[in-house]
Write a protein that binds this DNA or RNA. Structure first.
Lengths: 337, 337
DNA sequence: CTGAAAGCGCTTACAG
DNA sequence: CTGAAAGCGCTTACAG
């Protein structure tokens, strides 16, 4: 049998193609008996409307594209899974845009909207994938998530990184730590700057003098966490606590401490950020800041859906709370020195 | 400006739409000068061909759909990332089909091919998402990866689970272990059955009597690994080594051992399967069987591409090797008993 | 409530 | 090498 078309269903049920189309898309416009006849033919034949035809006509693809720097990252994976659930509920499909931090890839995926392959973009990278020219005027339907881009008029779903970092520091301070180091994430990431800001504010509020040597640059990878920890161990006055700006770096740092025979938290407390799935399974379980991945994905998708359905309200900015999760990788500051 | 179409470019460059189309798709059919004129107009105007038009005409979407039970799983995430890289090279885009093990979702994503939304399927679930009727006759372009489905004529990309499990057991036997337990994965997963098969074969070859109490059912989740480990600890004759059929369960098992104060590998050796990104960062680093995720993704996509380009050869079955990675979670069997 | 007709934006077989 | 024309499969404004 050749591919079934709307005309075949029309013939089978003795109505016009127009009526078949209406039955499928706007059943309330069709007489109940007619509807039944058509639905019967559809069911019996196993007809599925061809997407190309309807897309060409309606100029809607029913797809959205999710742009993320790395899908194998647990945070991103958790978010995209929530997006997919929400998308499916409303009949949308999700195109995967793993950008690997490459601008060419970002542009490639952004193109999908102009070519009609996607109706909107969920953007979790830290820059817009368009030429900046007269862009702000006619942005495609887009929601910026996690990494806040400094452009007017963007819909955003963010997380309170400043407060999250403060909560982390306050926890360490309450445990008696004064020599608190930070392992920073990717320098280009707004999330990193926000976490640093919260970190510094909390230290100041605790009356702790900022100390440059306790700020080590990382890039959110486990490897960078390992390197940073090694650098910190070489310091004459070692920190008693290390706040890594994500869990991957914290896990890297912990593996270095284990290798050198330091006790966690006996000698050094370690704190992460994200609460990835493996954080609670570390040895010791990692104290960290929990990210509401499901809520981020869900809120992003809903905001995009609102735009796609033409609600042209002012850009929204949703900010979700983070939560400190205390486990065993942090403890009282050692009394020694 | 309204949306740019092929007619606009035709007008701008003084040729027919047909020639614009040829220039973009089959430039070798077009005179060099004409080509230049057209490309200039395309460049200056920023024209991107509308996908709906070409798709309707060619009956190709340029998308493929990847069906996986859980995208947040490190193994799946690694595979889909490799798929995406390979797809992009050839101009294909990847639709995400996170099935969550639900048959309704599997069918939904399978539908994409009949509706034209996708040209082919990469299937990493353990069953076909179609009615079995007269199906085998006209299967859509499809590659079955990782979880081998028992249906004639499927293209497959698999991993040698039997040999992988054997290598694992042999390593433990070489360390002097005789009481070797297994924590099994999802009962429905062919991968689990294959690993069990290799496990049992290797025990037999080592002359070790099979012991039912050392076979504990899990389901590939960390939680199931924890439960299984607790059950094993209650045994009168505890095993000296536990082979978990994936890393997640091994990580769960390790966290239970830590909680109860057992030394790894001093008291009990733990072995995983997969070599996820965090395996080497565990405390102690996990001995496991490495999966070539990139190769799996790449081979799958290439096989699908071959089908899509009409090479109608006999179904191929690619089997990739696994590799034992010895780290510190396994050691000599304790001499005590 | 239903049908006939136009048209969405391309591509390609055909003719020249 | 190029153009005119048909047509891919739908949807919807219009008319009845």
């Amino acid at each position: 049998m050749s591919k079934l078309g709307i005309k075949d269903i029309a013939a089978r049920s003795g109505v016009s193609p127009a009526t078949v189309s209406r039955t499928l898309r706007n059943p309330e416009l069709v007489n109940k008996d007619t509807r039944k006849k058509v639905m019967k033919a559809v069911r019996e034949s196993g007809y599925t409307p061809n997407r190309f035809g309807s897309s060409l006509r309606t100029q809607q693809s029913g797809n959205i594209v999710v742009m993320m720097p790395d899908i194998t990252n647990q945070v991103n994976a958790g978010i995209i899974r929530a997006i997919e659930v929400e998308a499916q509920k409303t009949g949308y499909s999700v195109l995967l845009g793993d950008t690997q931090g490459q601008e060419a890839r970002e542009r490639h995926y952004a193109q999908m909207v102009s070519s009609g392959q996607a109706d909107g973009i969920l953007l979790y990278t830290h820059r817009l994938p368009f030429d900046l020219d007269n862009l702000t005027a006619n942005l495609p339907p887009l929601v910026n998530g996690n990494e806040s881009i400094e452009v007017e008029g963007l819909n955003k779903v963010m997380v309170d990184n400043v407060q999250g970092a403060k909560d982390g520091v306050n926890h360490l301070v309450a445990l008696g730590h004064r020599r608190i180091a930070a392992v920073l994430g990717d320098n280009n990431a707004p999330s990193n700057r926000e976490r640093l800001q919260g970190f510094q504010q909390a230290l100041q509020q605790a009356g702790i003098e900022p100390d440059e040597q306790y700020l080590v640059q990382g890039d959110y990878t486990t490897e960078s966490g390992m390197k940073a920890m090694e650098a910190l161990l070489k310091l004459r006055k070692r920190p008693t606590a290390v706040f890594c700006f994500n869990d991957d770096m914290a896990i890297g740092a912990m593996s270095v401490l284990r290798e050198y025979g330091y006790a966690i938290p006996g000698d050094i407390s370690i704190m992460g950020f994200d609460d990835i799935r493996y954080a609670s399974l570390m040895n010791p379980p990692l104290t960290t800041i929990h990210q509401p991945l499901e809520e981020i994905g869900q809120a992003s998708m809903r905001l995009l859906l609102a735009q796609l359905s033409g609600k042209n309200s002012a850009p929204q900015h949703i900010q979700l709370p983070l939560q400190l999760v205390v486990r065993q990788s942090t403890g009282p500051a050692p009394e020694s020195d």
